[in-house]
Design a protein around this nucleic acid. Structure first.
Lengths: 338, 338
DNA sequence: GACACCTCGGAAAACGTTCTCCGAAGACTT
DNA sequence: AAGTCTTCGGAGAACGTTTTCCGAGGTGTC
């Protein structure tokens, strides 16, 4: 009961390989009675098309490569889930590559995926600058959609949340709640989100109160930095910490609690992404929810369009509006669960 | 600069396709000067082997399918990370399939992966009983390693943590800390871990104190159930909640806090898995750490051995010893961070 | 009844590898 | 000097599809 091939089915159905292929693929009408015989034989032998042969012949593998910086970043699993579901629904398979935040590994993985003849690539670049070369080269050979983070202008199609709009949501919310001395806790580095959020905060905070001193502290996207940042900025007496992601916010929350600072009474804290942990922290973290399902849907739709002939169209950049999720960490009092 | 083929390289190097193949694959010694010419030509043309053709000819795709119930389960990302790294290190690629905890979808995904001619499968079955048929059928056709959860006896090779040992670690720790009235908060259902933990708890608790009434509450593996369980079991006055995973423990912690119960003073709480959230909860959750890297290493090693000829050996079951991670939720006083 | 026109089926050529034969040398043995 | 081994290279057959091209037969039109 090894692998039945077209040839075996043809023999069993008493017809030619070509006919079997046509019946099974529906490429051309085939006589009703023959078709029935073929289908019956195929079922009986448990025939499954050999995708390798199919790929070789049709120059398409039905496979998409998904390259991301770190699957353990808690924001990505939900995205991966939506992407795989969307792609499976179209009959595609997903080759996953985690590159450990290392642009060199990323380039290797992309290379490998290309040699495996993926039909397209979905890439969340590890680094805005250092990922660029490999991504641009790959985009020359295969449809490529950038996700969540960008990678220099005009390199490829791109789908991401509107970071500026998200930051504006947060700042408006804080201002409405009477916060007057916000402080931005962000990240250095050249992941595109880091830079965009820095810029968006600067623009938004300046608009709110042009005379206010700008409080900014930069580290990385980790819980540890959130903790450290608290010690660094608390002397400047902020009444709100606008964190560039939820991990930072959670770290800040921990440290504030340890130092006996009342949240949200004295200091409000906000995050970004709405990872699962954000809801579970105490108090719950007010944050900007990325529309993960829409992100995935737009990305796969863009990909499908590129694969369906519109290969040469102009680069598209899709920006999705995020949503503010208000929880205890920014309210007048704690509305979170714990 | 489309795709250079062996034929192109051969033409450029002035030799035959066979020779180029031999040089590049190193299958057979080739004259030094010819080899050099070939390598130079290949580099110049940017030749990349076409894996589809290679797969067709050599009946091996260099690809492994990874099937899991829910990538959003916070325990899996770390595992996926280790697995992909280990497999990439061996030159294999990973086809990812998330089946949304649905055995039917799981069967479909497995089917698709088989038709894509994966060399092997890594499966974390969604359900001990209902996943069995599809997994067993797949194991007939391709090396298959079960991960983390089992799927009926003797179906395939299997690598998992020793749940009984982990439970024993927890119970010993609690007993040493003077807890006398533990309560198990577990899960119904037929995911194998659920049943094993139930059994292990019953055995271990019975050994500690055969006369004690057995406290057990069963729900599912979620935060919500952890919260609900607290209300259900608190009237029985337990002094420790032994939760079947960290999510349950975190839910319990939240609810206990809301109800003003002192943790760990009045009630200790323990989890299982050591997901990232366990460290961040307040207090930190004492838990059983799954040796994720070793799990991945053993699984890929088993797979590699099966792929390297030892196809017909007897089924192996590898059980790895877990490690107890003591945090604030079980101490005499809070040693956690927040 | 000749002609064109459909419909259905088969033969066979790709797709880009790997690998098995074969042959032509040269390097040894005797 | 004739034989036997090695060594290196090429020709060509697979692998399992899809697809193009053809032919055979039937149906329609004039």
């Amino acid at each position: 009961m090894g692998d039945a091939t077209l040839r075996d089915v043809a023999r069993a159905a008493g017809c030619s390989v070509a006919t079997v292929s046509r019946v099974l693929a529906g490429t051309r009408p085939v006589g009703a009675e023959t078709a029935h015989r073929v289908r019956e034989a195929a079922a009986r032998l448990g025939y499954r098309p050999n995708q390798a042969a199919r790929a070789l012949r049709s120059r398409a593998t039905g496979t998409v490569g998904l390259v991301l910086p770190q699957i353990t970043n808690p924001f990505y699993p939900a995205l991966v889930r939506e992407l795989t579901h969307a792609l499976h629904a179209e009959g595609r398979a997903v080759l996953l590559a985690d590159c450990d935040d290392d642009p060199v590994a990323e380039a290797e993985r992309i290379d490998d995926l290309l040699s495996r003849r993926v039909d397209a690539l979905l890439v969340i670049p590890a680094d805005e600058r250092r990922s660029r070369e490999a991504v641009a080269a790959a985009a020359e050979r295969v449809p490529l959609v950038l996700l969540d983070r960008r990678c220099g202008p005009g390199v490829a199609d791109s789908v991401a949340v509107d970071n500026a709009a998200g930051t504006a949501l947060v700042l408006d919310h804080l201002a409405a709640a009477g916060r007057r001395r916000p402080c931005f806790v962000g990240a250095h580095g050249s992941a595109s989100a880091a830079a965009e959020l820095r810029a968006a905060y600067a623009a938004g905070a300046g608009a709110l109160d042009p005379r206010a001193p700008e409080r900014v502290a930069l580290g990385d996207f980790s819980v540890a930095w959130g903790r450290a940042a608290v010690d660094q900025v608390l002397p400047t007496r902020p009444d709100a910490l606008v964190c560039a992601n939820d991990l930072i916010a959670i770290g800040a929350l921990q440290r504030l609690h340890e130092r006996g600072v009342d949240v949200p009474g004295e200091v409000a804290v906000t995050g970004f992404d709405d990872i699962p942990m954000a809801e579970l922290a105490s108090p719950g973290v007010t944050t900007v929810r990325q529309p993960v399902a829409e992100l995935a849907a737009e990305a796969t739709q863009l990909l499908t369009r590129r694969l369906g002939g519109d290969g040469a169209g102009p680069r598209r950049t899709i920006r999705l509006a995020p949503e503010l999720v208000v929880r205890g960490s920014s309210g007048a009092r704690d509305r979170g669960r714990v």
